[in-house]
Nucleic acid binder design. Structure first.
Length: 950
RNA sequence: GGGCGAAUAGCUCAGCGGAAGAGCGUCGCCCUUACAAGGCGGUGGUCGCAGGUUCGAACCCUGCUUCGCCCACCA
């Protein structure tokens, strides 16, 4: 091996593909369900087949891979279940938009069979792309198990679940008010509707009384629905309308006569109809308004549907409006009302308007027969499970959100009038009978007729998703996979799908499996752009994980816009992209992106920017170079010999302080990482590694080790120095090797690459990913070594500071005198003199115990309570500046001392605070006073000669 | 209208009862043979406001202000 061939800069594009291939070829990602080891299972939230992976996926998936790789290394039978979701409505929207744009046709022009053919073709292309991206990120998914929500086995599970729920009375058909998407022409569930306030108007319409003698005024935000009015409601206690109860009005434009009905409801603690609002009279359109429908049920009103499934007016609306869109009809109705003198005041008004999350279409409330899941009994068990702690949410605050929704759950409308999805296993007979069955029936059990047609509708995508944690493991068969991997240990997903998905898995999992689907639900942060705005292709602020990995020039980013042609102003979008990514995206590699994801995943949201990922790219490079340095200096190192040396009696104690120090720090970081991962504090784990590697291993240990590692003819002939060199080599190699194992779950590629190159005992596995995760060993913790090292570091820093302050070039050695009062620290400094000299580039002498006063023309700094750094400067010294600097330090010490004295002078504090706290404060006061005294002395020597000089 | 969360250095965020921290930025000095994707040093904060609890509060409690997010069929 030629270590000098290692490049100065880490090149992920060269390294990553090699290890990706190696891991896959060796089947390291695959878990055997028959393994006797303890299982640890996670099911990947299956990405929608519509897209490619976005940065939100990279976050959630990275965290899962960290857990899986960690547990795998810790000896668990770790299984990570991959899969893809068919995403029925999303696919419809995508394909139908494309069809419209390219051929100006609808799915109905194409026909069900042809549409399905195209959808499957799309699935093949897109599904593969997603898997490729997952592999690119290094995700250790159990590929042979990969599933699709519409594959053979999933279909079977869906049919089985549907039939059982139907037989148990938990699935039923009912005519209820639903949300209709007139663009996609399907019902959508409440969750798929986004309500937002939009600008609109409040129109007053005058309805003349049939008997003459006046009119009643109603207010509405949707005048066109008056064509379907079947009543006017007034509050039963409203004295203004008592005389009109049971009377009728002539409904303008329609020639119909509708009753005035008294009614009295309470909504949100307010009477309804509210006499205070408008005229206090409400027009009632039962077929197109949920609230009006409720009234119609109470008052037994006629229901007239005047809007059809394409969002156009239909009979029994008067012929002149039939065929108009809702918007057209609104204009026409308003104009006609005005012409008829039936229009009152018009006010600007904020109207809450529901839109389909997927298609963006304005939702029409409609009365239709659909398939429903009776949710309450299922929710009850899920609530109990969470209350009993069988599943817990992390962060914990999400529990409330989940529980609130669950306790107020409404029945779940599961039928969709789409094609791409699971066809409902129900058959309709001409006699009206409905047969729900696992296999297509041939005759009707009621009338014996054979004219059966399968229900045209498909199921809500989330129905199959709700079965996913067990359908992927072979359910309804009783498989070994289910026995081993159900329940999963954790579900990691975004908080945006708690209701859509987590809730449904909980309900269906408990119902069918008798056990919760996962022990823990970990909800990730939300990834936004650096301004906190949601990333969106039409805003030009999207960071594509592939670009982060491979890099992309600004031209490539702009070119992509031309190819994709989003439905917005292209020039504006390009401007935004140029503004956001003017310099393009440098290639960071998957490891940097992964590490960034873990490190930035604090609560709330991640404001992601290229710069932030860059910081971790730099970190990966730092790690690479530290390893490169080690490899350049590990010649002659024998891992077996080192291990024997360490395990020999007294072997550890024989280590020098810096070696004991770094191994102690290594122990600390192992403990921190393990504890952090255990409680899903990914950012803490990443930060512990980051600081250990950079601030301790690289900045200090490697620097301290250098003189012992460099080979020279003298070292070669000096047995003691040779032995020392070998020990330092061993400690450095061990620290690095352990760090690779510790960091592997976060950044698998670079750690594998380095680990493979490091010299290590020969009987280890062929890949880092199947070695053992570092285990904490408290016996390595060495508080003494840590304290010693700290003193040396602080002293070196003080020397650097003085040099810097006086403009001494960092490279120029300068003499300093270290004055140490007490014996213990004096010994430490004495032993560590060479370390200080090297770290600060000074020539240090330790002043004798009986040294006289420090020279006046010297800069001085006090380290802690014990060490004074004196740097003679001769004519260079700036007395005034020096006095100011030391004066500032004294002020600081004074403040500190005053605070401590006040505290310690407080009888209550002495009486009530714990003893160790009091002792600690006392010790601090002592130190601070000693320190102050040294500062004052230093200032005094300056003052002695400063008078004339300044 | 309800619920949840957040407010700490110029920016992004940790810390959540006993000495105010990190990264980025900024200002300096260094191409020191692992790394300029680097090294070194400095600057920078009455921890949103007002009360309370406590020997002690950035941290716990109450109220307020300002921002987020989620839920909700009011004409």
């Amino acid at each position: 091996m030629s270590t000098s061939a290692l490049p100065k800069q880490y090149d992920p594009s060269e390294v990553e593909p090699r290890w990706r291939r190696f891991w896959l070829e060796n089947g390291f990602f695959h878990a055997d369900e028959a393994s006797p080891t303890v299982p640890y299972a996670i099911t990947l939230p299956p990405p929608n087949v519509t897209g490619s992976l976005h940065v939100g996926h990279s976050l959630g998936f990275t965290l899962q891979d960290i857990l899986i790789r960690w547990k795998r290394m810790a000896g668990f039978n770790a299984m990570w279940m991959p899969g893809i979701d068919h995403a029925s409505i999303a696919v419809h929207v995508l394909l139908e938009k494309d069809l419209k744009r390219r051929e100006n046709r609808t799915r109905f022009d194409l026909g069900r069979d042809e549409f399905m053919r195209q959808a499957w073709a799309w699935k093949e292309r897109s599904g593969n792309r997603i898997s490729e991206q997952e592999k690119l990120m290094g995700f250790s998914l159990d590929w042979p198990r990969e599933r699709f929500t519409m594959d053979e086995r999933s279909n079977r599970a869906v049919v089985e679940a549907f039939v059982r729920l139907y037989e148990e009375g938990l699935i039923f058909r009912a005519k209820r008010m639903i949300n209709w998407d007139p663009v996609s022409e399907t019902v959508v569930s409440d969750l798929e509707v986004d309500t937002a306030e939009e600008d609109g108007s409040l129109w007053e319409i005058k309805y003349p009384l049939s008997e003459g003698g006046g009119e009643i005024i109603v207010a509405t935000t949707r005048p066109e629905t008056m064509l379907g009015d079947t009543a006017v409601a007034v509050n039963a206690s409203d004295p203004r309308y008592l005389h009109l109860h049971g009377k009728t009005v002539e409904l303008p434009l329609t020639g119909r006569r509708v009753p005035i009905v008294p009614i009295e409801l309470v909504r949100d603690g307010k009477p309804w109809p509210d006499p205070e609002f408008g005229s206090g009279a409400v027009k009632i359109t039962p077929a197109h308004d949920p609230s009006d429908y409720e009234v119609s049920q109470i008052a037994k009103l006629e229901i007239l549907q005047v809007i059809d499934t394409r969002g156009r007016m239909c009979a029994p609306a008067p012929a002149q409006y039939v065929g108009m869109t809702v918007d057209e009809a609104r204009k026409a109705v308003v104009a006609d009302l005005e012409a008829a003198g039936a229009l009152g005041e018009i006010k600007k008004y904020k109207v809450p308007r529901g839109r389909s999350q997927r298609s963006g279409a304005v939702i029409e409330p409609m009365l239709m027969e659909q398939w429903w899941v009776k949710a309450a009994p299922l929710a009850e068990k899920a609530i109990a499970a969470v209350e009993q702690g069988k599943t817990k949410f992390v962060p914990e605050m999400h529990t409330k959100v989940f529980m609130h929704w669950m306790t107020n759950i409404k029945d779940w409308c599961i039928s969709r009038q789409l094609w791409w999805g699971h066809r409902i296993p129900a058959w309709h007979c001409a006699c009206g009978e409905i047969i729900v069955a696992r296999e297509a029936p041939t005759t009707c059990p009621k009338c014996a007729g054979g004219a059966l047609t399968q229900d045209e509708d498909i199921l809500d995508t989330w129905f199959s998703s709700g079965l996913w944690p067990f359908s992927t493991l072979g359910w309804p068969e009783k498989t070994r996979e289910l026995a081993a991997f159900y329940p999963n240990n954790v579900l990691v997903t975004g908080p945006d799908i708690i209701f859509f998905w987590v809730a449904r898995m909980m309900m269906l999992g408990i119902h069918f499996m008798g056990k919760v689907p996962f022990r823990t639900v970990y909800l990730t942060s939300l990834v936004t752009d650096e301004n906190g705005d949601k990333m969106s292709k039409t805003k030009g602020n999207v960071i594509d994980p592939l670009d982060v990995i491979h890099g992309a020039t600004i031209d490539q980013l702009l070119e992509r816009i031309d190819i994709e042609k989003p439905p917005v102003d292209l020039d504006k979008l390009k401007g935004a992209v140029k503004k956001n990514f003017g310099k393009g995206v440098p290639a960071m590699g998957a490891d940097a992106l992964r590490f960034a994801m873990a490190a930035l995943n604090t609560t709330g949201r991640i404001r992601l920017s290229i710069d932030r990922v860059e910081k971790y790219r730099n970190f990966i490079n730092k790690l690479w170079n530290a390893s490169r340095f080690a490899l350049m200096n590990l010649d002659g190192y024998d891992p077996e010999r080192f291990e024997a040396q360490l395990s020999a009696p007294g072997g550890r104690a024989a280590l020098a302080m810096p070696e004991r120090w770094i191994l102690s720090r290594l122990q600390a970081v192992i403990g921190d990482v393990d504890a952090a991962l255990d409680s899903y504090r990914f950012a803490d784990a990443a930060s512990a590694i980051f600081h250990f590697v950079w601030d301790e291993l690289c900045d200090w240990y490697i620097e301290v080790a250098k003189p012992h590692l460099y080979m020279s003819p003298e070292v070669e002939q000096d047995a003691a120095r040779n032995a020392r060199r070998h020990v330092v080599q061993g400690v450095l190699a061990t620290a690095l090797e352990t760090t690779m194992r510790l960091m592997h779950p976060f950044s698998p590629f670079v750690t594998e690459e380095i680990w493979q190159k490091l010299p290590k005992p020969s009987q280890l596995p062929s890949s880092l990913m199947v070695t053992v995760f570092p285990r904490g060993d408290a016996s390595w913790v060495d508080a003494g070594a840590e304290a010693e090292m700290k003193l040396l570091q602080d002293t070196a820093v003080a020397c650097r500071m003085l040099k810097q302050t006086y403009g001494v070039s960092p490279a120029q050695p300068i003499a300093v005198e270290l004055r140490v009062a007490s014996a213990a620290p004096r010994q430490i400094i004495e032993k560590g003199l060479a370390i200080i000299e090297r770290a600060a580039k000074v020539e240090a002498t330790l002043a004798g115990a009986a040294a006289g006063p420090a020279p006046a023309d010297a800069a001085k700094a006090v380290v802690g309570a014990d060490v004074e750094v004196v740097m003679p400067l001769g004519g260079l010294i700036d007395f005034a500046a020096e006095k100011t600097r030391i004066g500032k330090d004294i002020t600081k010490a004074d403040k500190e001392i005053a605070g401590l004295e006040k505290k310690l002078g407080n009888a209550d504090f002495l009486a009530r605070a714990p003893e160790d706290v009091v002792a600690e404060q006392r010790a601090r006061l002592g130190e601070e006073q000693a320190r102050r005294q040294r500062l004052v002395d230093a200032l005094a020597t300056l003052s002695a000669s400063a008078g004339g000089a300044a």
